[in-house]
Amino acid sequence: MIDARRGVLYPARMPEFHRIAPPDEAAELVEWFWIPEWDIEPGRSSRQHVVPYPALNLVVEPDGVELVGASTAASYRDLTGRGWAVGALLKPASVAALTDEPSALRDASCAFDAPELHRDVVHAMGEGGETARARACAVFADWLVARVGAPTAAARDANAMAALLMTDATIIRDEDAATRLSVSVRTMQRLALRYVGMSPAAMIRRRRLQEAAQRVREHPRTDLSTLAVELGYSDHSHLTNDFRAVLGFTPTSYRSASADPFTG
């Protein structure tokens, strides 16, 4: 199971936010559903910084449905006014039924034509509260199961690949994962591009960076050189360069910002 605490750089800045496990019938299709709800006073905004998981998301909002591709960099969204979203962090097995070319959505998104899904989720969220969130996830799961159908053997292989790359800290190279999965590196690369839109190496780098950010945030006294070695970086400089390239700042500056997350 992917660690649900990872990915959000400043949790204290988040609006009301819920992660909800999928029902059993959708467990091969969705890692979890996520629902933010916000009510920002007029004239103000709330900026949410994330290091996205290397996965696609299908997101329903009051004004439509969007398919969001895997991201190669950190991103943010400025929330204003009052609103909500119901998103599904998709497992690879869902992807082939939603797009023919997930790599074309890398660092991008597109409107997704799903009027029944939009109607049912909007109706469910209109009730408000915990019951509304549960109903919204239930109808979302039902729609996905009907749309995707039973996963193929290749789709299940892609799920196994993604789970290994995103949860096992001992996997630091493509070859490590391929050996564990008993497939060739080339086969694994084809699975990743077809079902995620990113290379296995990029997925491993994303997991390591998410883990590094989480450790720095939750354990501010962590020695960065030791952390770099534990996560498979060659040294402290390698960790710092990865932080700067993806997040735009160093682990040291992130540690300072995390101690006072409402600044900046």
Rank of each mutant, 00 (worst) to 15 (best):
V139R: 08
G69R: 06
R135Q: 14
R207Q: 06
P23M: 07
R47A: 13
D235V: 04
L56M: 12
D260L: 14
V60E: 02
A160K: 10
E218R: 09
A55Q: 08
R135P: 01
T252E: 13
E230P: 00
V196M: 07
L90K: 01
E37N: 04
E16M: 11
A228G: 05
L227H: 05
D100H: 14
N241D: 11
T170A: 14
L165F: 05
P200Y: 11
L58Q: 02
G64R: 03
A73E: 13
L29C: 07
F243K: 03
L58W: 03
R180G: 04
L193S: 13
A257G: 05
I171L: 13
M203W: 04
E101A: 15
F140A: 09
P251W: 05
R194C: 13
E116C: 11
R207C: 05
M161D: 04
A27R: 13
R156P: 00
D113M: 09
G7E: 03
A134C: 02
L9K: 10
P22T: 06
G43M: 14
L67Y: 00
A124W: 10
F140T: 08
Y195R: 06
A141N: 07
L56W: 01
G126R: 10
V50M: 10
S225H: 12
L191H: 12
I204H: 02
T99R: 00
V216T: 06
E31N: 04
E130N: 05
A132I: 02
W34E: 12
L224D: 06
H49C: 11
E101P: 00
E66G: 01
I40P: 02
R208F: 02
A132T: 01
P15V: 11
R6W: 01
L56S: 02
D78A: 15
R44L: 15
R156F: 00
R82S: 15
V50Q: 07
E101R: 15
A192N: 06
V121R: 09
A163C: 02
V185E: 14
L191F: 06
E130M: 05
A108E: 12
S258Y: 03
V86N: 00
R221L: 14
W143V: 08
A132N: 03
L105V: 10
Y76H: 14
A108Q: 11
F140D: 05
T187Q: 15
S75T: 14
R244L: 14
T187R: 15
D24H: 10
A108K: 11
V8C: 08
E37F: 01
E28L: 12
A132C: 05
R244E: 13
P42E: 12
Q210T: 09
A4Y: 02
A259H: 14
D176A: 03
D120C: 13
S199N: 08
L165V: 07
